[in-house]
Simulated assay, not measured.
Amino acid sequence: MLLYKFFGEEKLGDNVNQVKLQEPLLFNLQALASATNNFHQSNKLGQGGFGPVYRGKLSNGQEIAVKKLSRASGQGQEEFMNEVVVISKLQHRNLVRLLGNCVEGGEKMLVYEYLPNKSLDAFLFDLVKSKLLDWRRRFNIIEGICRGLLYLHRDSRLKIIHRDLKASNILLDEELNPKISDFGLARIFGDNGDQANTIRVVGTYGYMSPEYAMKGRFSEKSDVFSFGVLLLEIVSGRRNSCFYDDEDDMSLLGFISLPYIAWKMWNANNIVALTDPIICEPCFEMEILRCIHVGLLCVQDFANDRPSVSIVISMLKSEIIDLPLPKQPAYTERQIARDACSSQNNLRKCSVNNVTVSMVQGR
Rank of each mutant, 00 (worst) to 15 (best):
I145L: 07
V235M: 03
R338D: 01
F6E: 02
L95N: 01
M214L: 13
R200T: 14
F123C: 09
N43F: 09
E285H: 07
S34N: 12
N15F: 01
C146P: 01
E9R: 10
V96W: 11
Q300G: 09
N197E: 05
S59L: 13
N353V: 09
S257N: 10
D246I: 04
C242Y: 13
D173V: 10
L12V: 10
T332G: 05
D248F: 14
L232C: 13
N240T: 07
F218R: 07
E79H: 12
L3Q: 11
L258C: 11
I87D: 09
I279F: 05
F80C: 14
Y244L: 15
S310M: 07
H293C: 01
F125R: 01
R97I: 00
L69E: 04
I313R: 13
E319R: 11
I161E: 10
E174R: 08
N192R: 00
I261N: 03
G193W: 00
M81A: 08
P307F: 11
L150Q: 12
P324C: 01
R55N: 15
C102G: 01
P259F: 14
C298Y: 05
G193H: 00
I142Q: 02
I336R: 03
C341S: 11
T36A: 03
L127W: 08
F284A: 02
G203S: 14
K166M: 04
S119R: 08
M109L: 15
R55V: 12
L25I: 11
N269S: 14
C350Q: 10
C298N: 02
D248W: 12
E23F: 05
M250L: 15
L133N: 01
K131H: 05
D191V: 12
E113V: 09
N140H: 13
L95R: 01
G51Y: 10
A213V: 12
L2M: 12
I313G: 07
P277N: 06
F7I: 15
I288A: 05
M208D: 09
L95F: 14
K159A: 07
V360K: 08
M208A: 08
L21K: 00
I321N: 04
D301K: 14
N197K: 15
A122P: 00
L316D: 04
V352N: 14
G76R: 05
E143I: 11
I180G: 11
V229A: 12
K215W: 10
K89D: 00
N37W: 11
N197D: 06
V16Q: 06
I288P: 04
L98I: 13
H162Y: 13
Q41S: 13
D173S: 07
A330C: 04
V201H: 08
D249S: 15
N354F: 13
M214V: 08
S241M: 07
F80M: 10
E104R: 15
S181G: 13
R97N: 15
K221P: 06
D305K: 03
R137I: 14
L45R: 05
D121P: 09
L289C: 09
F125T: 00
L12T: 02
I170Y: 09
Q62S: 15
Q300M: 09
E220P: 04
L124F: 12
G46D: 05
S222W: 08
M265A: 10
N169Y: 08
